[in-house]
Design a binder for these strands. Structure first.
Length: 1050
RNA sequence: GGGCGAUUAGCUCAGUUGGUUAGAGCGCUGCCCUUACAAGGCAGAAGUCACAGGUUCGAGUCCUGUAUCGCCCACCA
């Protein structure tokens, strides 16, 4: 790689738009990202949390991937054989929904009209497009993934891992068929997962209905009252429940409240007391009626379900809560998970009333064909007409909406494949408890353990087309047929180890949309289902199975199933590949907290099951990025930031450094968002109001620009305003500072000649900067190794800016102009910059590489003691060793003295408004040692503060007209000659004296407290005494100065 | 309902095991286009560390409670 620029003609800005793609392409051409398991080094592995191919990456991804690349790059420099495994996730429902929606919008087609194969082909096209875009974004961010190994959760390698795992679990008996309430999206006609459902509070009603009792006996109620927020579901009711022991349940409820009362805060007590009182009132007024209803239930009394005129039983079940409502609850087993449980316990039939498109089916009798909303109205009206509507309350209801289609979710029960979690979860919990998997920050381990501790079986089937199709062939078999089929299949499985079978018990309550009523009596018919799982798509076996009437499940697996295998499927498992042997288990997983359970826990569980070893030893959970209002960023809200907008404006290094700078141990990070006017670059604060506008008029230049909401042609033709955050300015400015410091170095290293340097040639500032550098290297390394990214970024920032640039480089300006000092100065400069670049490289890879290349041209041989040739790329340069011998607290303390005097001089200059070019004279009253130390620094006072020293030592006489700054143990006295602003100086000193008095008073009272003097550690007490002495001396000196000034003023 | 977290300068955030006078960046004020950098330099103003108790010789830091905000999980006939 060559650059034709000479150092003097380097631009004063790093041109990231030009340089970054060039550098990235060069890294790739040199194979610097490639991981090779045959190399004799220690492995360090990270698997990327595969981004969904749903769309482009957002700022959360930018954070996540920056943090991974930072670690990867440091480890690579530390000599590890480093693999960062890239890839993307097929993201089941999310991707299918996006493609389906486009299909509808652009071609007005549904997926059923297009057909399964064609739809899947469309989604593959979408995937190719977005995978390319995502990988492009990662590359622009500088991510050093081994791209040759890029995987996709639906590719052949991953598919094989999925098949193998599913088959294995199936054979172990850990996969079974069961019922689960699904969130049915009637628009997309598919089930959606819980995390794709958002709950909104809407105004709704709570209806109280009365169901007539069939043939009430004397003294019995004629009606039973129930309440519901979803009246139309009454068409699917198959019972009304009453608690089997209302008195005991009331006692239990009261005991529970009493227990809470003992722990409750004062504010909550009133409410609890009210509730207790309500229960007591119920015991007095309602208990007899409830017990009567219970007796009726036990006696087998039935109710007449109105509108469809279906007799339904009154059942006794503890799900009914006597402390709530009427004490009776309607039971709709096909549309409510709790009701389903009741149905199971009481042997109730299930009546599904819903078609897949959200209209009511034949089970709804006269309401068949109506939409839910229409049916709801009519059910209420019809019940009212019958005089069975007892009351209507207004109530806020949490209504579930599908994130994908924005339509209300309808819950109903469907057959699903489940994974038994008991043993798998226990193993995954142990891995964390025993710290074989360490979660950082540790507080997140609790959520992981709690979630796994519930051991809720994992429903893994989805009614989708995009995903790994479940490799199970099934048939419902009548009792008569069972024995012969069993014999056939059993023989087949014995002959073929890649086939395994399972009977599903006498379960005839399967409910699918549109299914007819399944009566309780059917259960006795003992129709069982036979399931055969195949490890491979072996055409002969499939043909055989199909000839026997088995059909493959149309369903696909939950997308998290394939994600759970990611750490080993990407390495080629179930093959024992060299990669798997070498790189598994991986080193660390870096992700955000919202998928600790969905993903992290399942990876641990599957890794343990498939390989007997957890997939990683550490999990780092990074913060979440919120907008300026503390809301999560999302494209649908309009407050999301595209990392490419940030890269365009600030550059990829600034994006990464900014991300690291934000990554503290907190769980959230706020990032106020601005629009950038494309005409005048003004930043316009994004508000909740303007973030949804299609166009915005720039308040500065008045010109309009488009936002992501631009829909009509006129708006779309406008220039688009980027959405950015000024929180990246710090990082951008830092990169610029570094670039210019490097420019200074390059300009002054033109005659660099590598020669050994001995310690006695080093000046105070050399020793100081080397000491600081060693400390910073140590701290930055420790910080990055323990995921304290912000500490690393801040430490390096402070050193580079405040110490290297503001002091060391400034001081070099003198020495470089002296021929006899130039060579040593150049050596230390080149060395310091070299080490600093290497420390910064993981954070800001592009700019450090560019400088590294340029530095290599003027100073190819660097090193503190003996010159050494440097690496071709900074990526392969060794990580700086911590040079403990260079750490010198004494030198740092001495340098601090110099800095203090310099600061005092600058303060006086500024206070007195002395023109910058006008030199001043000063004296320092201090002890002899300090004087000896500071005397050689005279040239620096001249160049850095425009101040010439006229005297040093304990007995210097103050100049006639002075301004003074009193430091810890010395006075800096400036001769102000004719330009003193006496009044200003008096005011300043008065203020200072007052502050000193306050501090002295504080210290004195502290030291006068016997308990402090007696009980605090001696060193602390001594420190207070020393401080008091020093403050008193400062006060005396300040008063003397004041007196002098007042004389002058008079 | 359960859990987790936050509250420090106008804004965004640091603040190690409790111990001198609580820091940074942005913004603000003043001076400077000083030959690496105006995306810069020098200096300055700005804080009742959310509130109330407690522990301690000593609390931004530890404990309890309150308020506000946020996130996760569960549930709501």
């Amino acid at each position: 790689m060559t650059t034709s620029l000479s150092p003097e003609s380097l631009p004063n800005r790093f041109d990231h738009a030009e340089a970054c793609p060039r550098l990235y392409a060069w890294w790739q051409s040199q194979d610097l990202f490639a991981a090779d398991p045959s190399r004799d080094r220690r492995p360090f592995t990270i698997v990327i949390p595969p981004p969904n191919v749903t769309g482009a990456l957002h700022l959360g991804h930018a954070l996540n991937n920056s943090l991974q690349d930072i670690l990867i790059r440091m480890k690579r420099m530390q000599g590890f054989e480093t693999l960062w495994m890239p890839g993307t996730d097929h993201a089941g429902i999310a991707t299918q929904a996006v493609v389906e929606r486009r299909l509808k919008e652009e071609e007005n087609l549904t997926r059923h009209e297009l057909g399964r194969d064609a739809l899947v082909a469309r989604i593959w096209q979408w995937k190719d497009q977005y995978e390319a875009r995502i990988i492009g974004q990662l590359k622009q961010m500088g991510c050093s993934c081994d791209w040759r190994r890029t995987r996709f959760t639906l590719d052949d390698v991953c598919a094989r891992a999925v098949r193998t795992t599913f088959f294995d679990l199936f054979r172990q008996g850990l996969i079974y068929r069961g019922k689960r309430l699904v969130n049915w999206d009637t628009f997309l006609q598919t089930a959606v997962s819980d995390d794709e459902v958002s709950h909104e509070e809407v105004k709704g009603h709570f209806w109280h209905f009365r169901y007539p009792v069939i043939d009430p006996r004397p003294g019995e109620p004629t009606h039973v009252t129930i309440a519901t927020t979803r009246p139309e579901t009454m068409l699917g009711d198959t019972a009304v429940a009453i608690h089997p022991d209302p008195a005991a349940a009331l006692d239990a409820a009261e005991a529970n409240l009493q227990d809470r009362l003992t722990r409750a805060a004062a504010k909550e007590r009133g409410e609890l007391l009210e509730q207790i009182e309500a229960i007591r009132a119920r015991r007095r007024t309602m208990l007899p009626a409830l017990e009567q209803l219970r007796d009726m239930a036990l006696a087998g009394r039935r109710l007449m379900l109105p509108l469809v005129d279906r007799p339904i039983p009154l059942v006794a079940d503890p799900w009914a809560k006597p402390e709530l409502g009427s004490g009776c609850v309607k039971i709709t087993p096909a549309h409510d998970p709790n009701d389903y449980e009741v149905g199971q316990r009481c042997g109730l039939p299930m009546v599904n009333i819903l078609n897949p498109d959200g209209t009511l089916n034949a089970n709804a009798g006269p309401y068949q064909g109506q939409t839910i909303a229409a049916a709801r109205k009519r059910v209420v009206a019809d019940l009212e007409a019958l005089g069975l509507l007892e009351a209507v309350e207004d109530r806020l209801i949490e209504l579930a909406h599908s994130d994908r289609s924005k339509t209300p979710i309808e819950p109903y029960l469907a057959d699903q494949w489940f994974i038994k979690m008991d043993s798998l979860a226990t193993a995954a919990m142990q891995a964390v408890v025993e710290e074989r998997v360490r979660i950082v920050p540790q507080r997140y381990a609790k959520g992981y353990l709690d979630w796994l501790g519930e051991k809720r079986d994992w429903p893994v089937s989805r009614q989708l087309w995009w995903g790994h199709q479940i490799p199970v062939w099934s048939k419902r078999v009548a009792a008569a047929e069972r024995a012969s089929l069993d014999r056939q299949i059993r023989a087949l499985c014995e002959a073929n180890p890649a086939a395994t079978m399972q009977w599903e018990g006498a379960d005839d309550t399967a409910v699918v949309p549109g299914a007819q009523t399944a009566g309780a009596s059917d259960q006795t018919a003992a129709v069982a289902s036979l399931h055969v799982c195949l490890k491979q798509d072996d055409p002969t076996t499939i043909a055989t199975l199909e000839s026997w009437g088995l059909e493959r499940s149309p369903e696909v697996l939950d997308t998290w199933f394939s994600s759970a295998l990611w750490p080993h499927s990407t390495l080629g498992w179930p093959e024992r590949t060299a990669e798997l042997e070498f790189f598994y288990p991986t080193s660390v997983l870096i992700t955000s907290r919202d998928i600790i359970t969905l993903w992290v826990a399942r990876m641990v569980l599957m890794g343990l099951n498939n390989l007997g070893e957890a997939p990683f030893s550490e999990v780092f959970i990074h913060p979440k990025i919120l907008d300026g209002y503390g809301e999560t960023m999302s494209k649908s809200k309009g407050n999301g930031i595209d990392p490419l907008d940030v890269i365009d404006k600030f550059g990829p290094d600034a994006l990464r450094f900014g991300m690291a700078h934000l990554t503290t141990e907190t769980q959230d990070v706020r990032m106020p968002v601005q629009f950038e006017c494309p005409h005048c670059q003004t930043l316009i604060e994004q508000t909740k109001k303007n973030r949804e506008l299609p166009r915005i008029d720039c308040p500065k230049c008045g010109q309009p620009f488009a936002t992501q909401w631009a829909r009509n042609g006129e708006d779309r033709d406008l220039a688009r305003g980027a959405v950015v955050s000024e929180r990246f300015e710090v990082a951008r400015n830092f990169c610029n500072k570094l670039w210019n410091a490097a420019r200074f170095a390059l300009i002054h290293l033109d005659d660099y000649a590598p020669a050994p340097v001995s310690d006695d040639q080093l000046t105070l500032e050399d020793r100081w900067v080397l000491s600081r550098l060693a400390t910073v290297a140590e701290q930055a390394t420790a910080a990055l190794e323990s995921y304290r990214y912000a500490d690393a970024a801040r430490g390096l920032y402070d050193f580079a800016w405040d110490e290297f640039c503001s002091f060391y480089v400034e001081m070099l300006k003198n020495r470089l102009s002296h021929a006899d000092q130039r060579a040593v100065a150049q050596r230390i400069l080149a060395h310091t910059l070299d080490v600093l670049l290497r420390l910064l490289h993981p954070l800001i890879p592009f700019i450090t590489e560019e400088i590294w290349q340029l530095l290599g041209r003027v100073a190819p041989q660097r090193g503190l003691v003996a010159p050494q040739p440097t690496a071709l790329s900074i990526m392969t340069a060794p990580w700086p060793q911590v040079d403990a011998a260079r750490q010198d607290p004494a030198i740092e303390a001495q340098f601090a003295r110099f800095q203090a005097v310099l600061g005092a001089l600058r303060e006086i200059r500024s206070r007195q408004n002395i023109p910058p070019k006008r030199p001043i004279e000063f004296a320092v009253r201090c002890d002899d040692r300090t004087a000896d130390l500071l005397r050689p620094m005279q040239p620096y006072f001249l160049t850095m503060a425009g101040a010439a020293a006229i005297a040093w030592g304990p007995n210097v006489q103050p100049p006639a007209t002075e301004a003074a700054v009193t430091l810890a143990d010395m006075d800096v006295l400036v001769d102000l000659k004719d330009f003193i602003d006496v009044a200003a100086e008096i005011a300043r000193n008065e203020k200072l004296a007052q502050r000193l008095c306050e501090q002295i008073a504080g210290k004195e009272s502290k030291l006068a407290t016997p308990s402090f003097v007696d009980r605090a550690p001696a060193n602390i007490v001594q420190r207070e005494r020393d401080a008091l002495t020093q403050l008193s001396e400062q006060l005396t000196a300040t008063r003397a100065v004041l007196e002098n000034l007042r004389k002058m003023g008079a």
